[in-house]
Each structure stands twice: as structure tokens, then as C-alpha cells.
Amino acid sequence: MRASSVKSEALDIRTRLAISLAVSGVSIYLSGTGPLLALGAATLLYVLASGRYRVIAVSYLAVCAMMAFTVGVIVVSFKIGEWLVAGTAWEKSVAMLKPAMLGNFHTPFLRMIPALNVLLAIGLDFSVQRFVGAMKSLRLPRVALVPLMVFCRFVPEFVDVIRQLRDAVRMRGFSMSLGAALVHPIQAIRLTVVPLTVRTLRMADHLSVAAEMKRVGYAKRPTQLLALRFGKADFAVLVAAAHILALICVWQALIPATPYGPRSVQTQEARHE
């Protein structure tokens, strides 16, 4: 098999959804640094196959910034707490909390990386047509399929509506900013949410009449404009992913976990005994 045929772009969206589901489940189970790093590396290779290096780098930077912000908030809050209880009866209790509060920031971060990678693999090659095709091919019931199709089609529409709304608000001489929302919260809601809600309800009326006329969702088998194919590349990637995930799970089962994980706590207790 040629390497290019196993590229992320060549894969069926159902394959990517299945990998995303499996990787997310496994990443929750894992708590060891080694297995999490291995899963992160494997999924990074998977997403790098898309060739969108710049987007991937920007996404990683955003996650790092978010993580740094969270860690900063925790550390500053804890230091303020320590300062407030200094010299009181609570000092010992707060000191006991210190390892749990300020230790082991890296494991949750490492757990986020595989989820980010598989999400990028879906997002970088996402098209509404292919996604709707995948949903149809999964034989989802009409109750789930129709709202999902409407969702996929109308998110871009709403983003456009919001842009128009912003321009309209500016034309009327109002400002759409945090300061304006703070000073006049009711006006901010009246100018933004009310037109959006009314427009959505009107849109629902028109759309449902059109859908009824076209008998959308009433056919036993939905019509597919884009037939999806489950190819050799999908099969190869799924088999490889299953093997890698199984190996990483075995590794996790064999190796003691992170300093504050439940397994390592047991290990530390056993050492003390």
C-alpha cells in the first residue's frame, strides 16, 4: 500500500469519528506519563498526515496558553489562600492540600493532547456534505438525522446573521462591547438576542414548510448525494489504531502510574508498609 493512500485526507469520516471515540476513551483510562506520551505521539503522527502544520502549531499554542492560564489561576489562588490562613488553625489543613493542588499538572495536560489531535484530524478535513453523508450512511433515525442536518447547514448561516446584526447595531449608534454590556445589560440582550431568536423562529417556520413540501425525513432510506466508501486505507488505519491502543493499554496496566494517581498512591502506601 502506498503511504499517500493512508493520509488523513484519504480516510472516510466514519473512520476518523471511530478513532476519535476510541482515543478519547483510552485517554481517560490512562494515567501514566509514558502511555499518555505514546498516545500523544501516535495521534500527532496521525494528524500530521494532513499536512496542515501551521494550523496544528497554532492549536498547540492555544492549548498551551489555556493550560498556562489555568495553572496560573490555581497557583495564584493557592498562594492567596496560604497568605490568608497564615498563623490560623487552617494553616495545617491548607498545607496538607498543597501536593494535591500544586502537584502533577502535566498528566491532565498530556490527557488533553490526544483528544486535541483526533479532533484536529476531523476538523481539518471537515465538510458539511461529507458529514451529512456519514450521518445518513450510519442509518441514524429521522429524529436525530433531521436536527443534525439542520445544525450543520445553519451554523455558518447564523455566523453570517451575527455579523449583519453587529453592523446593524453599529449603524444605530450602539456599541457591541463588554463595557456596553456591563453598563446596559438589558439593552445589550434586547439588541442582540431578541432579533436572533425571532429570526430563528421565523426561519424554523419557513424551513419546516419547505421540508414538509419536500417530505424531508419521511423516506425509508435517505437520499445520498455523496456516496461514502470504506476503503483499504480506512481498514489499515483502523487495524493499526486498534493495535496501538491495545499496546498502550497493556503498558498502562503494567507500569505504575503518575505521582498522585490512585495506583501510585497505593504503591507509595505499600512502600511505607
Binding site: 433531521v146 439542520v150 447564523f158
Partner: peptide
Amino acid sequence: WDTESLIVVGLFTALGKAA
């Protein structure tokens, strides 16, 4: 579930994300 209800649910989910 008539089509109108399904469309309203789909539209409001989209609106929630856009909001």
C-alpha cells in the same frame, strides 16, 4: 416528532453555538 419540531431543535442548537 413532526418535521417542524425537529427543525426547531436543530436550529436552536446551531443558534446556541453561534450565540
